[in-house]
Amino acid sequence: MTKYGMAINKTRCIGCQTCAYACKMQNSVAKNVRWNRVLSEGCDVVDGAVGQYPNLSRTYLPLACQHCENPACMKVCPTGATYKDEMGRVEIDYEKCIGCRMCMAACPYNARSFNWEEPVHEPGFAYGDKDVPERTKGVAEKCTMCKERTDRGEEPRCVQCCPMGARVFGDLDDPNSEVSKVIATRHASQLLEEQGTHPQVYYFE
């Protein structure tokens, strides 16, 4: 079995947002939506800082769908539009989504976005991978772990584009894969472990 996963080196992340924009371009993500967000930890603003001057610190947390082994969103989806595929990714069948947003209430990571209106693309030309399906208003969407790319044997776009090489992608079921080794040797942890969702996205420092 293949179980795709990712490990993100928080020490290497410089908060440049390249992954967030690369993701938008790859997946034709509309205006006002981000599948991939680089958060400044402990801050309500982008690029904020924690502490009191002059003792300030700033750390970044790149956040997208965690592709959980026990996905809360999949369990509550009334039509089975959200599913776990054979590669261990959590995916959405937009044709089945009725827009009830139960998944958005269930996801502990707020990873999902909703198309509140017909997607607007800015700049006004069709960007995105030719294989990525277009979404319409009224469906939920989120990181697919670049399903279309990874199906072709390529890395997700955020992994490929990170200038710091902070992201490692691979098969968690293969103990010899780079991602499995990194998780084993670098004491990688999962986000909100207490929620029991068992994310397949790991963070290490």
Binding site: E95, I98, C100, F114, W116, K137, V139
Partner: peptide
């Protein structure tokens, strides 16, 4: 409240009884 009421028939053709 549904965003895609035109696809509501999906509830009857493929309901997820865990929901």
């Amino acid at each position: 409240d549904l965003g895609g009421i035109q696809r509501i028939w999906r509830l009857f053709t493929g309901p997820n009884f865990a929901s």
